[in-house]
Amino acid sequence: MRVRRALVAVLVAVAAAASAQVAYKRAWPTLAADGLHDPASPALAILQEPSEALSALPPDFAGNLVNWMASLDGGYIKPRSTVLADTRVTLRSTDVLLKRTGELPLVVFPHRQHTAWLDCTNCHDQLFQQKAGGTMINMFLILQGEKCGVCHGAVAFPLTECARCHSVARGSDAEKTFRNLVRE
């Protein structure tokens, strides 16, 4: 028990240290030196450098070093929701409390933030049941790139940011405001 608690503490510290280090620099690789683009490609003179676009957006400590939620909610970016004429946009605003977190703080899954970017069908019912507590989710699956890990760790903020998902302390007022694991 004590060993496990120590391990969790170490993990959180390492994750925090890793993030702090990146945030301090807030430097993006240049296209020519990112190991991905061909430095000999004529496109490099035309393509936009990440630093040019991303440095203007609210900062973050990991991933693209951009807080994408703040960028969207603050109106820094205005990404289109549709390109075809008759697509229906669906939104939802409930928060779901996920309690099987061992000794870590509980996880809150917020629908508002997710449906701002995503469609219901990106998650339901392939990844998750439409029933609070109905889906088997755990950290092992997530780290394998399943469940939340389909996006987090690939495109949305990475898994080193434990506290952003594990955000509600056990026994806190925030936990008590959830009725039946769901909060409007």
Binding site: L11, A15, P29, D34, L36, P50, G63, G102, M139, T160
Partner: peptide, 25 residues
């Protein structure tokens, strides 16, 4: 799961070199 998390965090920390491609490419 914890051991897996530890491994991933360690890899991520080591991996955070500036020569990496932009996240999500």
């Amino acid at each position: 799961a914890l051991v897996a998390v530890a491994a991933v965090v360690a890899v991520a920390a080591i991996d955070a070199t500036p020569a990496a491609a932009e996240y999500g490419d």
